[in-house]
Nucleic acid binder design. Structure first.
Length: 422
RNA sequence: GGAGGGGUGGCCGAGUGGUUUAAGGCGCACGCUUGGAAAGCGUGUGUGCGUUAACGCGUACCGCGGGUUCGAAUCCCGCCCCCUCCGCCA
């Protein structure tokens, strides 16, 4: 959501931002619409002023017991006219709001320009591609052979894009989630939050998922939306609030299920656990002072990467190009873990700085001592990490030729001492 | 599911048709006072839009949307949200 004033003050910057997103210039149309709205408002206000003046005079005259029938008839005639302007003003304002809500965030200046993920730029890499003895198997081959990962039964219960984990793999998922969550809360200053995972429309709007991307979400019959990420409830924690500057930054971490319709992904990643309708994720959200969000973005990405380092998983970090970024982001880092079974890097975390884009949509502000007025906070979110994909990564990276899995050392205590699965 | 209460500025809270130009309080800012502080006293303190060189002035906003009226925070209708009690339930 954009500040109409900033578009009017600097239309070139807005259009340049849209262009980097591969979109047509729009500032001219928006400004014309805004101008029309304000002109209508001015005329409306003049009519209202006349009405108020006359009505006040009627009140005074009536109190003196004078006959005011003529004056009342005169004001009555004004009514039709100003009601027309009232409607016009409201319609224009609504059109303008709807229009503004449909534009994605403007990319930060240091975001590489490009049409899609091919233009993403790798900025660092940790560890090395592990040497798998024998032919590297994919996670679902390993999981199914262990009889702890069951897609057939999941399909029987829920259809495609679901999985049933059992035994040590179910435990492994829980261990991974607990490991991540404890790390972020105990070492990195995040406050653990257990939020609702059904949310109302306004929360989905605030995060930027509605109204444009409703087809990506699941909805209940009584109009709750299932969260596609805990970013949705966590970011909305500050909706409609005016925080004190001293409360910033706020850092939240949650482990929740996430639900995605994957409407546009038909035929993509159909096998295995990479792309599911339901998956677990540990999510990080920060609410910061506008001047601190860039630093916080680096810090958050560091926190997410640290999880992979401790698990001993090779990864690289890329900055997304303008064409690959999400709707609400102004800059995004993706962390991609190496999957030997697929012989490629796959996204396991996405950390975004949304600037004030979401804060405007949900009206989240802060106040500084001694400063008049309020400012919008900045919001950031990042996976720390996607638990389902982390499980995939552990299976593929720690596989043995016999199909058994070595449990990473940092998880031993959470696996009741189990060092090897299978 | 049944019954009831409520939504007013940064916060609390008054306000059932006409100087409400939204009382009062808290908080905050500035000033006076003081050796310094506290207390006290005084002044100020929302947002959008328009207008003005500026001080200002005008207008809208009392959950949202309609309606009644010369005039609505106030009356009527619809919707959204919050709370309390009862019932059911993990």
């Amino acid at each position: 959501m954009f500040d109409i004033k900033s578009i009017c003050n600097n239309p070139e910057a807005f259009d340049a931002g849209l262009k980097r997103r591969g979109m047509a210039a729009a500032a001219e149309d928006i400004i014309a619409l805004d101008r029309m709205r304000r002109a209508t408002q001015t005329e409306l206000q003049e009519l209202q002023r006349r009405r108020n003046e006359a009505s006040k005079a009627i009140g005074v005259a009536k109190a003196r017991g004078e006959d005011v029938a003529h004056e009342m008839a005169e004001v009555r005639d004004l009514k039709e006219e100003y009601q027309e302007f009232e409607r016009g003003e409201r319609d224009l304002a609504e059109t303008l709001d709807t229009l503004l809500a449909a534009y994605p965030n403007i990319p930060a200046e240091d975001v590489p320009e490009g049409a899609d993920e091919d233009a993403n730029v790798e900025i660092r890499r940790w560890g090395e591609v592990p040497q798998i003895v024998g032919e590297a198997k994919q996670h679902f081959e390993l999981g199914e052979a262990l009889e702890m990962m069951d897609f057939e039964r999941a399909a029987k219960i829920s259809g495609s894009r679901f999985v049933v984990l059992s035994g040590a793999l179910a435990r492994l998922e829980r261990a991974l989630a607990g490991f991540m969550l404890d790390m972020h809360t105990e070492e990195f200053g995040y406050t653990e939050v257990a939020p609702p995972i059904l949310v109302r429309e306004n929360a989905a709007f605030g995060a930027g998922n509605l109204p444009k991307f409703s087809e990506d979400l699941f909805r209940t019959t009584d109009d709750y939306w299932l969260i596609p990420t805990a970013e949705m409830p966590l970011t909305n924690m500050i909706a409609g609030e005016i925080l004190d500057e001293t409360e910033l930054p706020m850092r939240f971490a949650s482990y929740t299920p996430c639900f995605r319709a994957e409407a546009g992904a038909a035929g993509k990643d159909t096998r295995g656990m990479i792309r599911q309708h339901q998956f677990g994720k540990v999510e990080l959200v920060s609410i910061t002072h506008p001047e601190k969000s860039n630093d916080e973005h680096e810090r958050m990405t560091e926190c997410a990467e640290e999880v992979l380092r401790r698990l001993g998983l090779h990864y690289r970090t890329v900055v997304l190009s303008t064409g690959d970024m999400g709707f609400s982001a102004r800059k995004t880092y993706d962390i991609e873990v190496w999957l030997p079974g697929q012989n490629t890097y796959r996204e396991i975390s996405s950390c975004s700085n949304c600037g004030d884009f979401q804060a405007r949509r949900m009206d989240g502000r802060f106040r500084s001592e001694g400063v008049k007025g309020t400012k919008f906070v900045h919001t950031l979110n990042g996976s720390g990490l996607a638990v389902g994909r982390a499980l995939v990564a552990v299976l593929e990276n720690y596989q043995n030729p016999d199909g058994s899995i070595v449990v990473p050392e940092v998880l031993h205590s959470r696996m009741a001492g189990l060092k090897r699965i299978g």
